[in-house]
C-alpha cells in the first residue's frame, strides 16, 4: 500500500526541501504563509492543499531565485461558473492567494511539477467574489 506524506505548515514562512518532493503540503495558518520552492530541479513535485482558509495576508508559493512559474489554476467558486488563470512561465514567479478573489480557501488543491527550468502549477483554487489571477511576479 502506498501512502502520501503530509506536511502541515503553520509558520509564516517555510522553504521546502528536495527530500519533501512527493509530499502533500497543507496550508494551515489563517494569517498567511509564504512557501518557497527549492531550487529548480527536474522531477521535483509537490501537492498543495488548503487546510485552513487564509483570512489575512496571503498564501503564497514562490519559486526560488530567478525561476519562473507557469501553469493553469481554475478559481473555483461553489455552485458558480469557474474562471481559469494561466501563469506564463516567463515573468510569473509565484502563486499568491488572498482568501477571496485570488483563492486560498478550503477546497484548494494543486500540484507543482518542475521540469528543470520552470515550475508547472495545475489544479483547483477555491475562491470567492470576483475572481482575479493568483499568478504574479
Amino acid at each position: 500500500m502506498q501512502r502520501r506524506r503530509f506536511v502541515d505548515i503553520t509558520s509564516a514562512t517555510a522553504t521546502l526541501g528536495r527530500n519533501q518532493s512527493g509530499s502533500v503540503i497543507r496550508f494551515d495558518r489563517a494569517a498567511g504563509i509564504v512557501i518557497t520552492l527549492p531550487t529548480a530541479r527536474a522531477g521535483l513535485w509537490y501537492d498543495f492543499l488548503v487546510k485552513t482558509s487564509v483570512t489575512s495576508n496571503a498564501y503564497e508559493v514562490e519559486a526560488a531565485g530567478t525561476t519562473k512559474v507557469g501553469g493553469a489554476l481554475v478559481n473555483s467558486k461553489d455552485d458558480t461558473a469557474s474562471k481559469s488563470f494561466l501563469g506564463d512561465g516567463s515573468s510569473d514567479t509565484k502563486v499568491s492567494m488572498n482568501g477571496t478573489t485570488t483563492g486560498g480557501r478550503v477546497g484548494t488543491y494543486f500540484r507543482a511539477f518542475c521540469d528543470g527550468t520552470i515550475w508547472h502549477i495545475v489544479g483547483d483554487n477555491a475562491s470567492s467574489g470576483s475572481e482575479a489571477t493568483p499568478f504574479s511576479s
Partner: peptide
C-alpha cells in the same frame, strides 16, 4: 479536459 483561458470562464 477543461480548456482554460486566462482570466476567462472555463
Amino acid at each position: 479536459l477543461v480548456n482554460s483561458r486566462d482570466d476567462t470562464a472555463s
